[in-house]
């Protein structure tokens, strides 16, 4: 708390507006266009990944840390969680005859 930043948090503001843009863009593609389902899924999926990367840099201080080991652990952890939740859910929901 001793060091209070005086400068305007410009990267946060840019990140915030970019995030809004990407979110509304995804909503617009999904709701307002008549593209085929597959294309829509690919577009909004890419927008989601872009936004995740953007937020990691703009808000989550990913490029600021000194500790490389901690960064590696965090990325491995995040990748593990993402694979389990996303790939795991897709596998579980579509592999059987549940629907």
């Amino acid at each position: 708390m001793e060091k209070t930043t005086k400068s305007f948090p410009i990267s946060h503001v840019i990140g915030f507006f970019m995030s809004l843009l990407l979110t509304f863009g995804a909503a617009w593609v999904a709701l307002q266009t008549s593209l085929p389902m597959n294309t829509i899924i690919w577009i909004i999926g890419s927008l989601a990944v872009t936004q995740a990367a953007l937020q990691l840099y703009m808000f989550m201080h990913m490029n600021e840390g000194e500790d490389k080991a901690a960064l590696t652990i965090n990325i491995l952890y995040a990748a593990f969680i993402a694979v389990v939740i996303v790939a795991g859910s897709i596998w579980v929901m579509f592999s059987g005859h549940s629907h």
Partner: peptide, 8 residues
């Protein structure tokens, strides 16, 4: 019992 694949 949801009816998953046997692999899952």
């Amino acid at each position: 019992t949801m009816g998953n694949s046997s692999a899952a």
